[in-house]
Design a binder for these strands. Structure first.
Lengths: 351, 351
DNA sequence: TTATTTTATGAGAACGATTTCAGAAATATG
DNA sequence: CATATTTCTGAAATCGTTCTCATAAAATAA
């Protein structure tokens, strides 16, 4: 159908091998024939068929992306979009392609991964989460397949590369930020504790409280996640705010959830930041555009993605030179959702 | 390296062709040998190498996604994430793979497309935008490559498939919604007019105004888009609100921009919906979670993506059965950002 | 029983590139 | 001028499948 290397070879009166070498700009071909062959390629409208190359090179030059099951709506979360953007750009500069899993459940995603690996569809994989009892990472390790995880390494930490934030430290800082503002009743609204991020951030939060001799009411530690309905999420918040020692400062592990919290607070007439200060995570555009704009921990999702991608490609090229772990720094970006604690408020509103 | 069809064949004492036929469950192979071969495949840990198949079948079973240049931040917009989710799920049910362009500029994206097409990396392409003077669609048409565009067909409409909303009607309805609320001074904040969506929605907006004998102040029609900085966007809004006949009802062509508008209004002490009613587009989670929750035109992005994907795959399977255009219905979902016009307000705030 | 059809499998040529090995031509060396 | 080197190109195997065509064996018909 379309013009192949052989067609070009015939027309140029050279061997296919020569054409192939011209294609890869081999120094073993003289400039004159290169020019001639290139001209003929142009004339005939030749274009490399990548699949032939893939077969012999045993390399697809594409990397696979594994997201959490879309039941948990990762697509909805701008955090993932940002990571994806970072990955995408790193791939582009290194001339790699991107392949997305399309599975919806944990199981179908796993099958996608198997297909990618065994079918040799991709050269390496980026796993966009870290979760206990997940089959993906163990599978990849077992099969010795190059991969990097964005998140905390759960086991065999020294056996594969990961890119992560220091989430316990980040959460500690977030809590400290509120504490420094004088807040003594702190609340934590995290995500699904099956994921490591959520655990780490909770740990950091507790750590900060402990260090400052603040004790946390059990009711003030809750989790909502994207698989919950918004209504559910709001319920959780309302319940928390309806406890005797309701928090005046909230650490929320995701900007997206931050919006849910704000919506809930709005409904029960609690004002941010006047009545309660909240600090989010990720610094996605959501935080910037929220009303009021959200103070948040910038986890640099773009860079998370970029480093993961770049690191994976490095591993692919020089497997011996493995960067074991990359920790992307976090920083608090101050906006308008936090305020020094105003002792008057509490009594006034208490019921 | 890994076990191939030939290895299995040898061990099972059959020809490679037989193994291949077992793989595709051909009725021409007896159940007994099928069973035997399958068992051996299992034992040897055989797994199909997709690349061999791709080469002979001349089909990759993957479809390519082309987004607007990421300079315009399409990744950031949950609207695209939703579309992507729809595409992803359609692909999954039909067992197709997904390949993303990684280019950042219009030019590099175009090159990505050329690579996809010429390199035979994908069987078909979904173009996630419609834009005048864009090279992608003409290129695909010229090369007779299967594709569908999400957006309005610009030329050769009867030559390719598209999935779109009726954007002029949708915008007309949005404007009417405000008009029915008694708003007489209407504003429009659109996106980049290079894109067809933006044009259509502006047209619909003007149509509604005309039909109701409302004349629109030229200063009340502005555009901001994602490639602008947030600050720029806010400036535009503030300027518009600082005109003698400032609008009391705003149609905004994207929820995302809706947030920008709300942030700007907030800064100049204009309240939504008390002082100005706003209606957004797309019904992304942003709208749901905004403060106040945004009344918005639901464009069903998920379905937009799903239909595009599904349609493309249909085209790939039966090229003769082309659905030329699919129009996804829109509907207004009412939330809290719109209110009947309160004549008092205007005079009160006017300066 | 013989001829004919059906069923089950095998042989081998693709698919479109890359790459090793070898050899011809050109150049350098003695 | 003969030989050794270097430079350039070609032949052919290979990557892992699929698929057409042929054929042996089994089943059916005559």
């Amino acid at each position: 159908m379309s013009v192949t290397i052989k067609d070009v070879a015939k027309k140029a009166n050279v061997a296919p091998s020569t054409v192939s070498r011209v294609l890869s700009d081999s120094p073993r071909i003289s400039e004159t024939t290169k020019k001639r062959v290139r001209k003929i390629m142009e004339e005939m409208g030749y274009h490399l068929n990548i699949n032939g190359r893939v077969l012999v090179r045993q390399s697809t030059q594409t990397i696979g992306i594994v997201m959490k099951d879309s039941a948990t709506h990762s697509f909805e979360n701008p955090f993932f979009s940002e990571i994806l953007k970072g990955i995408s750009e790193a791939c582009h500069t290194r001339d790699y392609n991107l392949n997305l899993t399309t599975g919806e459940s944990e199981e179908t995603i796993f099958q996608d991964v198997v297909k990618m690996v065994q079918g040799k569809r991709v050269d390496g994989i980026i796993v966009l989460y870290s979760k206990k009892d997940d089959k993906v990472v163990p599978y990849l390790m077992e099969h010795n397949f190059p991969f990097v995880v964005v998140g905390k390494p759960l086991f065999g930490a020294n056996k594969f590369m990961y890119v992560d934030n220091d989430n316990v430290e980040a959460a500690r800082e977030a809590a400290n930020y509120l504490i420094e503002f004088g807040h003594k009743d702190l609340g934590f609204i995290g995500g699904d504790l099956k994921f490591e991020v959520a655990k780490d951030r909770l740990q950091g939060f507790k750590l900060a409280a402990e260090e400052h001799g603040i004790d946390i009411q059990p009711e003030s530690v809750q989790s909502i996640d994207l698989s919950d309905s918004v209504e559910n999420g709001k319920e959780v918040v309302k319940k928390m705010m309806n406890t005797p020692r309701r928090p005046t400062g909230l650490v929320i592990t995701d900007d997206y959830n931050g919006l849910t919290v704000m919506a809930a607070l709005q409904e029960i007439q609690i004002k941010v930041p006047e009545d309660v200060s909240i600090i989010g995570f990720n610094n996605t555009m959501i935080a910037k555009l929220a009303n009021p704009p959200l103070t948040t921990v910038d986890t640099n999702p773009y860079q998370l993605g970029y480093e993961a991608s770049d690191g994976l490609i490095n591993i692919l090229h020089t497997p011996e030179m493995v960067k074991r772990g990359v920790i992307i720094p976090t920083s608090i970006v101050e906006r308008d959702s936090c305020k020094p604690y105003n002792p008057g408020i509490k009594e006034l509103d208490a019921n």
